[in-house]
Simulated assay, not measured.
Amino acid sequence: MNVDTSAEDRLRSALADAAETVHEAPDAYRRAQRHWQRLELRRRAVMVSLVLVLVILACAAGIWALSGASPAEHVVFDDRGHGRGVLRLAPGAL
């Protein structure tokens, strides 16, 4: 029991001595906070840039796909079916 308490006391005094030699700068917290804010701003800017690039690529792919369509062949409004997709009004209905 005596050996454990002496080792514990020596460790406690060594840690206390080491803690006394540490002197923090007066503006250490403000500097660390500015650093964290810069990192957060950079992270958000990277995320916004990635989302913007993805949206631009999706729009470009859509425009490319639509530009290759033939005007004679409509995919969305196909009036070659059995009356599906086409609204036929009687003359003078409007």
Rank of each mutant, 00 (worst) to 15 (best):
D4K: 00
T5Q: 12
T5I: 13
T5D: 15
T5E: 14
T5W: 04
T5C: 08
T5N: 12
T5V: 13
S6I: 15
A7Y: 08
A7W: 09
E8I: 06
D9E: 14
D9H: 09
R10T: 08
L11F: 09
L11W: 04
L11K: 08
R12D: 15
S13N: 15
S13R: 15
S13T: 15
A14Y: 13
L15P: 00
D17F: 06
D17V: 01
D17S: 04
A18H: 09
A18Q: 12
A18Y: 01
A18N: 05
A18P: 08
A18R: 07
A19T: 09
T21S: 11
V22E: 13
V22P: 11
V22M: 10
H23Y: 01
P26G: 07
A28Y: 13
A28V: 12
R30Y: 05
A32N: 13
A32G: 13
A32R: 03
A32P: 04
R34E: 15
R34G: 12
H35S: 06
H35G: 05
H35K: 06
W36R: 11
W36Y: 08
W36H: 12
Q37A: 07
R38M: 08
R38E: 14
R38F: 00
R38N: 13
R38K: 09
L39P: 04
L39E: 14
L39T: 05
E40Y: 05
R42Y: 11
R42T: 12
R42Q: 12
R43P: 05
R43Y: 02
R43M: 08
R43N: 10
R43Q: 14
R44S: 03
R44I: 06
R44A: 05
R44K: 01
A45R: 08
A45F: 01
V46T: 01
V46W: 00
V46Q: 00
V46A: 02
M47W: 04
M47P: 00
M47K: 02
M47S: 11
V48M: 03
S49W: 07
S49A: 09
S49P: 01
L50C: 11
L50A: 13
L50Y: 10
L50K: 11
L50P: 00
V51Q: 10
V51M: 04
L52Q: 10
L52T: 12
L52A: 11
V53T: 05
V53S: 01
V53W: 08
L54K: 02
L54A: 05
L54V: 07
V55K: 06
V55T: 09
I56E: 03
I56G: 00
I56Y: 03
L57N: 03
L57Y: 11
L57E: 07
A58M: 06
C59W: 03
C59K: 02
C59F: 02
A61P: 01
G62C: 04
G62R: 07
G62Q: 00
I63P: 05
I63T: 10
I63F: 04
I63Q: 03
A65V: 03
A65N: 00
L66Y: 14
L66G: 15
L66Q: 15
S67K: 02
S67T: 06
S67Q: 04
S67V: 07
G68N: 04
G68Q: 01
G68A: 06
A69C: 03
A69R: 00
S70I: 10
S70W: 03
S70K: 12
